[in-house]
Simulated assay, not measured.
Amino acid sequence: MRGMIHYQRNEFAAANSAFEKAIMQDPKDLQATQMRGVTLYRMGQPAAAIPLLERANTPIASDNADGTYVLAVCYLDVHRYDDARRIFAQQYKLPVDSAASYLFMGRMLLRRNYPVESEQMTRKALEIEPRLPLAHLLLGQLALSRSQAAEAVVEFEAERKINPMDGEVYERLGDSYLRALRYEDAQQALNCALLLEPNSTGPYILLGQVLLKRDDALTALNYLMRAEHMDPNNHLTHLLLGQAYRALGRKEDATREYKSAESIQNSVENPK
């Protein structure tokens, strides 16, 4: 009980000490064992956490999925990727050596900021199943993160052929075309994204950027105003609105939007 209280207060050193004492009194206490493993992970000690989490995982995994997830993440952090893939596959009921299992690993590795390993796992998934949905989408995201717009376009176009009804694919493709200075292609892709995902602000903002690049500030303004109505706290939207108003000669409106963008950005960087 003392360990749980310290853990909930983010007092991890004290929690670790309490759980350690609980285990000394009762080595079969699997909850204390698991919680000490989770605590060590939160303390940045994944290697030390793994034996404890492994010991507790099988008997109580059905009652507490958090410990199972943390064990898999610890495996990732110590580069035991096959073990991590096995755990994730069990959690999500995937065949361990399937393309989906490798793609899942690719996504988790990217989330943990291991882009090289993420790409390796994703390409392995495509070797197993060349038309696997979402694999090229992930490779395109990796290419964008490296500012390789042309490579991203290739991947997103490949995903579009496999998965033509996913609005995110067209949004990412439009973003890649924009970065590659292919403004007409970007506009077409983003229009497709809007049809599939009319409640997402991303395509509206990107269309505003594209139309500003194409010297069509009036049309850009319409899309950006819609994005601002949907999410008034996006500083990029206000910044682009300022550019659109300035291009239209509406200086007071432009100044207002620039100030709004600055205020939102400052509130994010300097929260109370």
Rank of each mutant, 00 (worst) to 15 (best):
M4D: 13
I5K: 12
I5W: 03
H6N: 15
A18L: 04
D29V: 01
G37C: 11
G37D: 09
L40I: 05
Y41I: 09
A48T: 10
A49V: 11
L52P: 02
A56C: 06
P59L: 11
D63K: 15
D66K: 06
C74A: 14
Y81V: 05
D83V: 07
D83H: 10
A84P: 01
I87E: 09
L94I: 05
Y102Q: 03
F104V: 01
L109F: 01
R111C: 01
Y114N: 10
Q120R: 09
T122W: 07
R123G: 12
K124Y: 05
P130W: 12
L132P: 01
L132E: 07
L139M: 10
L142Q: 06
E151C: 03
E151S: 15
I162N: 05
G167A: 12
G167H: 06
L178E: 09
R182H: 12
R182T: 02
E184H: 10
A189Q: 05
N191I: 14
N191H: 14
P203I: 15
L206T: 12
V210S: 00
R214P: 00
D215I: 01
R226S: 09
R226Q: 12
E228N: 10
N233P: 00
H238I: 14
E252K: 11
K259I: 10
S263M: 13
I264M: 06
N266Y: 08
E269M: 10
E269Q: 15
